[in-house]
Design a protein around this nucleic acid. Structure first.
Lengths: 152, 152
DNA sequence: ATTTGTGCAAATCGTTTGCATCTGA
DNA sequence: TCAGATGCAAACGATTTGCACAAAT
């Protein structure tokens, strides 16, 4: 009964590979080499914010080849499965957040970094003038930061 | 003393063309045919949210030819000059807002529309954990809306 | 006349897609 | 076996850029 799991164990740094495996199955996703590698990187440390490109770079460092297209696919599958959340902070790139709880973000304009910001929250009931055939999906708050000295 | 202003007056719907002219000059921008046409569309009615593509379509309807590249250039110049504000609501497109005061946005996920939302505001002093070499540039709040029935 | 802006088309960037091939159960 | 996943390269949409030409003062 050799599964891909056993095959991956040597390369993985995550202690609960089993959990990843189950999480993927629960999401209806076959736990493939690539998906396990990606999940391992995403979920082994604390919360992360990655772009597809970022993640692709990180995966390259492991011994498992994953194409950029697969990284994109996987990020979207994980998002649909509720394992990730998309963050819209700045036009160009899409960021994915491993923290799927209600929380907000700092965005560092100098470095294009995204950071979690817990603490503030806006009550949906405080929002006036919501058209009545509409419902609030989510309230996103982005606090844009800049280094104190820099002007541009 | 025939300036381009006189030349444009027949085509413009905006009553205070003079003001536009001055606004552009103040911003260090030559009041060209194209920039005046764009400014007229942007500022003649109430507050607007446009993408470059949107605006390009609108300008086409006037009798003044403006290339898409110039629309982009102009939007950025206006933004730098403080006449517009960029809005980051959803990955793909960048929206520009003629309302440069502090206010927040609704984003209609079904139609990709941006709407102003006045009323809520977050006090900068309420934000904890701002790294102390950083300052808050802006706090963006986006309330995402969806039609009540639709699931996707 | 000089400086600045504009138009076009090609280039770029992030992301998506089509399809042949491969993999995991 | 066989559905489902992957890789590649080409397609894509939004935005930018380079450069010759045009326009405003």
């Amino acid at each position: 009964m050799t599964t891909i799991l056993a095959d991956c164990k040597t390369k993985m740094t995550n202690l609960n590979l089993k959990a990843i495996d189950e999480q993927l199955r629960d999401a209806g996703l076959k736990p493939t080499r690539q998906r396990i590698a990606i999940a391992d990187i995403l979920f082994r440390d604390g919360h992360k914010h990655v772009s597809a490109e970022d993640l692709h770079e990180e995966v390259k460092k492991s011994n498992i080849h994953v194409s950029l297209a697969t990284v994109y696919n996987t990020l979207h599958q994980f998002t649909t499965a509720g394992l990730l959340q998309e963050v819209s902070v700045d036009g160009a790139k899409t960021y994915f957040d491993t923290n799927t709880h209600e929380h907000q973000h700092f965005f560092l304009e100098d470095t294009n970094e995204v950071m979690d910001l817990e603490g503030i929250s806006i009550d949906k009931d405080d929002i006036a003038n919501v058209p009545d055939n509409m419902e609030i999906v989510r309230i996103d708050v982005v606090v844009r930061l800049r280094e104190k000295s820099s002007k541009a």
